[in-house]
Design a protein around this nucleic acid. Structure first.
Lengths: 338, 338
DNA sequence: CCAATCGTTGGTAACGTTACCAACCGACAG
DNA sequence: CTGTCGGTTGGTAACGTTACCAACGATTGG
């Protein structure tokens, strides 16, 4: 035998019967009560409370023109605090506009992304916010999305001209690298994503630009661009520091690579291994960076704000206040010296 | 002039017309195609592709007995990586069961929680997973939820007997404290949540239990239980270390307090201030804890697994395979010495 | 005193979908 | 040749809601 559960959700009809009015009067009351006699409103509200009635939002959004009140959000990795903050920013702005978010995690899998987008559209979302994976993007073309507006965050998709929020990846990486060069470093290693990842490519470009501008050699043997997780980053850092001519500083293009590099550097210090104690510049913040055994410069940014901006762009589109041409917002980053 | 957008979503009727069949044949085809001639199925699928048709899940779930495929999830703070991982675990299991999650952030606000739960029910969620706030819980009583099953995570709600997943807070705090006592510490400070927070209370109990069992004095002047954020935790740690008889070790009941305490300890070390360099035991993991200037013991647990377990309980309930009595799962924690 | 107007209320239809039933077809057994 | 049966197809109604229109009573102006 199953557990005793409460009854199924009551309908507007039952509320109407209990209140002794028609369903229309209930509907009007719940919609704000314009042109409904106060005493009837009171009876309706009493019936609503007594039955524990909730309006069926799905049935509601069935009527043409009615928004569903849902925003579909697909991100690549919710376990990364960066994306947790991003999702929080989106959720906040959505809530301010009386919307909820449906959240999906793609895990950098284009197939899963496609599946999520289909499902979101099937659920009649009012809009989509996506941190796109690197796969092909046929399923994101406007004609496939119907009239559902899309905002991209953090990354762009080739051949897709839509509202986008980005970080100043190039500028941040450039300025971070310049900081190292100013401090006298000339041999600077690079740890980052594979170049097919949009941010990886942009951050590398900033690094490269600073290096060549200052005439510092860009040496492929201390450039590692294929690490997505901490362990791979640790290994790459190890190889770099075991290089016959090791770098005196390391530029890390993201949080995962920073943690991996510092883990390796910390290990060498603890074990008393010889070799350089490289300065580190990290794109992405992490907590207690000021307590690291080597100086760490942070290229900081606000993921939550990024989420808020993405949602703000989306609602501008939904409310028709956006320019007709796709908008791109590029958020500044700040450099925090140790 | 607004942007040119694609047409609105096509309906099953339009697909049917294009394929030259009835809507029913389209519906049957999309439902798996039992008893539909293969050539008609092919025509239907071609029309679906041509029009970019997606089934309207909201209209679908309108029919009685049909699940909406949505799980409502409300957590207290998405910015905390702990809850990001939790949400990821829930999302994974939900996806394995063909469900999506609607996510809301309560920010420890009972009113917001109530609002979110109403909205979730209005959207006909198949189930609810909640990290409850500390407020009163009338809105969570079964009769208010209708037939929507509820799973609590991380915390219990007084007077609410439902499926729950918890950590072994008491045992973890006890073992962590015992570790400090074994290492010779007797004067151990406590940093944690206010006692009205369920986990704060349980972790304090584990600490207290270990202290009294070993005859160590529980001194209220080095017990601070009212910090929710890093800055408050830093201030509490500062007061504790400025105490005329400062603790030689600190037990921190959560991530936020740990970061705050270490920030203060690091500051004192950098500034060369005198006084103890307390060992730290932290309930909740954080990255690079092994690189801290004082030894940090981690009471570790798997937030993602907690999320998975919560979702697993919920689906057991939904599929009727759960025992009729509410279930409680208490996940173990591990102690990681520095 | 009647007509027009306004506030209030309810009936009907429609949103997109699918369960149910009826109808049709061909094949095959008697 | 007829009856039955299984596979296939379509029509109808209903899910819960609200826009629209019709109807009603009361008030007001002429």
């Amino acid at each position: 035998m199953s557990t005793t559960r409460g009854a199924r959700q009551p309908t507007i009809k039952e509320v109407a019967t209990l209140a002794g009015v028609s369903p229309m009067t209930v509907s009007r009351t719940l919609a704000g009560g314009v042109n409904v006699r106060p005493d009837l409103q009171a009876r309706v509200m009493a019936a609503v409370r007594e039955l524990g009635y909730y309006r069926n939002e799905n049935a509601r959004s069935l009527r043409p023109g009615q928004p569903s009140g849902l925003i579909g959000v697909a991100i690549t990795n919710l376990a990364n605090p960066y994306y947790g903050n991003f999702a929080l920013g989106v959720e906040e702005v959505a809530a301010e506009h009386g919307r909820r978010i449906i959240l999906g995690n793609t895990g950098e899998d284009a197939g899963r992304e496609r599946q999520l987008v289909s499902d979101f559209i099937g659920r009649q979302v009012d809009g989509l916010i996506l941190v796109p994976t690197s796969g092909e993007a046929a399923h994101l073309q406007p004609e496939r999305l119907g009239d559902v507006p899309l905002v991209l965050a953090s990354r762009r998709v080739p051949g897709l001209d839509v509202d986008t929020v980005l970080l100043d990846d190039v500028g941040g990486a450039y300025r971070g690298t310049i900081g190292l060069l100013d401090a006298g470093h000339t041999r600077i290693g690079f740890l980052g994503n594979r170049s097919s990842v949009f941010t990886g490519e942009r951050r590398y470009r900033g690094y490269e630009q600073a290096m060549t501008e200052r005439g510092a050699p860009v040496d492929p043997s201390i450039i590692a661009r294929d690490q997505q997780d901490v362990d791979a980053a640790s290994r790459a850092a190890r190889a770099m520091l075991d290089h016959p001519e090791p770098p005196t500083a390391i530029f890390s293009a993201n949080n995962r690579n920073t943690i991996g590099a510092l883990r390796e550097i910390g290990r060498r210090i603890r074990d008393g291994l010889p070799g350089p104690r490289p300065a580190v510049v990290s794109f992405d913040d992490f907590e207690l960076s000021e307590l690291m055994p080597v100086p760490v410069t942070i290229i900081d940014h606000d993921a939550r704000l990024l989420g808020r901006e993405a949602a703000t762009l989306l609602f501008a589109r939904l409310e028709g206040t956006a320019e007709s041409k796709p908008n791109t917002v590029e958020l500044p980053v700040t450099i925090e010296h140790p």
